[in-house]
Design a protein around this nucleic acid. Structure first.
Lengths: 141, 141
DNA sequence: CTACCAACATACCATGCAGGTAGGTTAATG
DNA sequence: CATTAACCTACCTGCATGGTATGTTGGTAG
């Protein structure tokens, strides 16, 4: 199951896409609009920043800003960054030790296909799809 | 993510389908074949039994047995029974309190469609698909 | 009737993660 | 220098996972 961390991150990104004006948007605004605890948001945003999805600036007039066009962010990218591994079962996660029963496992192909399905679904949706913005809607500076 | 409980339950069901002979199969056999702790298996099977998926009999010569043809069990049915709710996010789970932001939530439709996709995928696969048995392969008594 | 087998039930425990809260530090602006 | 806002660290509570251990109940075989 996707945790609140992933869900909140997605909502913040959509919010930043909808309210973008070329400048920096303080998290307090987003927290108010989205009704999410500011402190909790502040714990999520650094990973988005380190991942190069947003750009954060300290101090007065500061805040966060998208670094690319909303149409260039996929949901898969955002969720992966925040949630880590989106594998449906432990044996498919990146840090999993190789399973000796893999070759004969009757259920492994089921999980693999489901993983693939999940990836394709989330990779096919961008921020502009969610924000209801046209893909050609360009960044205003 | 699907927990070991769900994964093990599925493997047990497939094992019971592959080795079914009309009689009862003791969990010790399954535990040995599947390399799963017997004690842990014994904690999973009562729910499968209560759910009417298998039939358990005490004592010597006892064990568990499928109650229907393998082709009549869907993966969705098995996982739902053992895992409870398979909703990808908390707001879609059955026990979730109604969210006041649902009407305006930009991300809700995304989760709903993913939930639907998951359901359709798992409901489209049966035990006989996994066990490699032909659907017409009938129960031998 | 007794030994044995196997399902079934219950209790306990260690670990990790979710979902926060609290407080302070650093960097930029006016 | 006061304010703003990102950023960092530590801590806390509750719950789920993945077991282990110790039985009890019900049925069969000898």
């Amino acid at each position: 199951m996707i945790s609140t961390k992933g869900r909140y991150a997605l909502r913040v990104m959509v919010d930043l896409a909808e309210h973008r004006n070329g400048g920096y948007i303080p998290m307090k605004e987003v927290a108010d609009r989205q009704q999410i605890s500011l402190k909790y948001l502040e714990r999520i945003l650094p990973s988005l920043s380190r991942g190069g999805l947003v750009d954060g600036v300290h101090g007065k007039g500061g805040g966060y800003r998208l670094m690319r066009d909303p149409g260039d962010y996929t949901v898969w990218e955002i969720l992966s960054l925040v949630e880590g591994d989106l594998a449906p079962v432990a044996c498919l996660a990146g840090n999993a030790k190789p399973c000796s029963r893999a070759a004969e496992c009757r259920t492994l192909p089921l999980w693999e296909k489901y993983y693939q399905l999940t990836k394709e679904y989330f990779a096919g949706i961008t921020l502009s799809d969610l924000a209801g913005l046209a893909p050609a809607d360009n960044y205003v500076i």
